[in-house]
């Protein structure tokens, strides 16, 4: 009886290490592809849009306030790093001012007459997807 010529090497060698390295690289690549975007969006972002156009997108911690004019009305938007609010508006309803502070991802301030939306975006959070009422 002779050994089967198709039988494999039985000792670990450097070529095996290449296969192992490739598997590790693939694992790292998938991990980066999957988890990196989530990490990057981890911070709460202030998104302001006026008349359907996004006009500003800033990290909440970097946002110090701005003035936005749309549809003939002007909103003074203030921020303190933790939250955003409309401090002054010349719109007739004043709903935007009355909304008060928003601090958590998913919340928004909407001014109907001015068609301005101030929205806090964030990473996967426990908050709701949509608010009704």
């Amino acid at each position: 009886m002779s050994t089967n010529p198709s039988r494999p090497e039985l000792k670990w060698n450097r070529y095996d290490a290449i296969v192992a390295t490739l598997v590790v690289l693939l694992a790292v690549a998938v991990a980066l592809w999957f988890y990196l975007p989530k990490l990057q969006s981890g911070e709460t972002t202030v998104v302001i849009s006026a008349g359907g156009q996004e006009t500003e997108r800033v990290r909440l911690s970097d946002f110090s306030g701005t003035t936005v004019t749309c549809n003939g009305y002007t909103l003074q938007i203030d921020a303190d790093g933790d939250g955003v609010w409309v401090s002054h508006s010349d719109c007739p309803t004043q709903d935007c001012v009355h909304t008060g502070h928003i601090t958590r991802a998913g919340q928004s301030i909407v001014c109907l007459p001015a068609q301005i939306i101030i929205h806090l975006e964030g990473a996967a959070n426990d908050g709701p997807d949509v608010i009704v009422g």
């Binding site: 494999p8 090497e9 039985l10 000792k11 060698n13 070529y15 095996d16 290449i18 296969v19 192992a20």
Partner: peptide
């Protein structure tokens, strides 16, 4: 992987498991 004759049973097995 079996066609890479230089690979030992370990390399083939790891590739298969992955």
């Amino acid at each position: 992987l079996k066609h890479c004759r230089k690979l030992s049973i370990y390399g083939v097995s790891i590739g298969g498991a992955a």
